[in-house]
Simulated assay, not measured.
Amino acid sequence: MSQYHTPTGGLPGQTQLLTDRAIFTDAYAVIPRGTMRDIVTSFLPGWTGMRMWVIARPMTGFAETFSQYIVELQPGGGSEHPETDPAAQGAVFVTAGQIVLTVDGVQTTLDPGGFAYLPAGSTWQIRNSGPEVAGFHWIRKIWQDAPGIDKPEAFFANERDIAPNAMPDTNGVWATTRFMGPDDLRHDMHVTVVTFEPGGVIPFLETHVMEHGLFVLEGKAVYRLNGDWVEVEAGDFMWLRAFCPQACYAGGPGRFRYLLYKDVNRHMPLGLAR
């Protein structure tokens, strides 16, 4: 049975030590679960019954290609116009409760593990249809067109219905559940769930062009990031700049799993946009 960590806010007591694992560098950032408290939430116009933690946003020295929110939605809460940028595509991944998405008039209910891809320019609405507080990730990126490439359509899935792809020569201890097909060039971002069985490892320092956002859904691990060793656990978020060296050991008694964003399938911009 899959588990998905969902922040609940709150505030630590006055006796708690300040020491934590939060770190922000030019190459990577770690935003640990303990920082996601009531006083660091954000709100958006046009929504009811919602608050969110912004864990990535485009800015100098941080995320360049995407934003990522963890949204907490009360029963009955939602929005008739959640996306205000017609150029922005979106991906939603549900970690708690139940939401109803209506995309271009078609309604779909998503439970934990549920995923939705929302094309740029689509008309969509969202509502918490259940009796419990719902939690979901909302990833946004400007879709980049390319010659001869059509815009992808909206689609819905649940990770439990997708067979994981085992990485070569790993005996299945490192696998990826893919929501977008790697050979579908219409998509300029991939959102996947990566799973390591206990003891699984990335056995080399990946150093490559994709920017990464990783939210730990389950378990714990030790990550090597740009020469530093950092411990991460369920509820932590990591941002990795393009070419930041990365590797990890899954160090807990159970599985280590994370929701992964990366930008793919497009030319590298040369100089300023023109």
Score class of each variant (00 low, 15 high):
Val201Lys: 10
Glu197Cys: 01
His5Glu: 04
Val40Arg: 09
Ile162Asp: 05
Phe24Gln: 13
Ala96Phe: 02
Pro32Met: 07
Arg33Gly: 03
Ile39Thr: 12
Pro119Glu: 08
Ile149Glu: 04
Ser67Leu: 12
Gly252Val: 08
Arg257His: 09
Pro168Met: 09
Phe215Ser: 10
Gly172Pro: 02
Met238Tyr: 05
Leu73Tyr: 09
Gly235Glu: 07
Ala22His: 13
Gly135Tyr: 04
Gly77Glu: 10
Asp145Gly: 11
Gly227Asp: 11
Pro198Leu: 05
Gly213Ser: 10
Val100Ser: 15
Thr25Ile: 04
Ile162Ser: 05
Ala134Cys: 07
Pro86Arg: 11
Phe115Gly: 00
Ser42Val: 14
Phe215Lys: 05
Ala116Asp: 02
Thr108Phe: 01
Gly90Val: 05
Glu64Trp: 05
Gly235Ile: 03
Phe237Asn: 07
Pro112Leu: 05
Leu259Met: 09
Asp26Met: 07
Glu211Asn: 07
Arg37Tyr: 04
Gly49Arg: 06
Val54Trp: 04
Phe179Ala: 01
Gly251Leu: 14
Gly181Met: 11
Lys141Pro: 00
Gly9Asp: 04
Arg57His: 12
Leu101His: 02
Thr207Val: 07
Gln74Arg: 15
Trp53Asn: 00
Phe24Lys: 13
Phe93Trp: 10
Asp161Phe: 09
Gln68Glu: 14
Thr176Ser: 13
Arg57Trp: 11
Gly78Phe: 05
Met238Thr: 11
Asp169Gln: 13
Gly114Phe: 01
Val193Asn: 02
Glu218Ser: 08
Glu83His: 07
Gly227Gln: 10
Leu118Asp: 02
Glu233Lys: 15
Gly199Asn: 06
Thr170Glu: 05
Gln89Phe: 06
Gly105Lys: 08
Arg224Ile: 02
Val201Asn: 09
Ser67Trp: 06
Val94Met: 04
Ala221Ile: 02
Thr19Ile: 14
Ile126Ala: 03
Thr95Val: 14
